[in-house]
């Protein structure tokens, strides 16, 4: 069970991802100057999720790692989203 082959991610990949992440940061700053009304928050959150996805898949190696970790992460995101949604069942209809 030990010494399973470990994937080595080339440094070049990290550089590309980093450039992508910084670009997304500036995009999200740029987007706030556009008047989107109530979609401002949604837009910012979508961009943040995209960035987190990059960090999770590449920096945290989820893309190359045991598939069970990916399932766990997906489940946790779902559970948390469900908790938020249920909490808002209270606040939105109060």
């Amino acid at each position: 069970m030990e010494n399973e082959k470990h994937h080595i991610v080339p440094i070049k990949t990290y550089v590309y991802i980093l450039i992508g992440l910084i670009a997304l940061t500036f995009i999200s700053i740029g987007v706030t100057h556009i008047e989107l009304g109530e979609f401002t928050t949604a837009g910012a959150l979508i961009l943040a999720s995209l960035k987190s996805w990059l960090v999770l898949s590449y920096f945290m190696h989820l893309k190359f790692d045991n598939v069970i970790l990916r399932i766990f992460v997906a489940l946790i995101v779902l559970v948390f989203a469900a908790v938020v949604a249920i909490t808002f069942m209270d606040y939105m209809y109060r």
């Binding site: 908790v83 249920i86 069942m89 209270d90 209809y93």
Partner: peptide
């Protein structure tokens, strides 16, 4: 069991929607 917490709070002033859901 993770999604039933609100049944401790029926009388706390939650919305009716939340109450029936819980």
């Amino acid at each position: 069991g993770y999604f039933v917490w609100g049944h401790h709070m029926y009388t706390a002033g939650m919305s009716d929607t939340a109450v029936w859901l819980f």
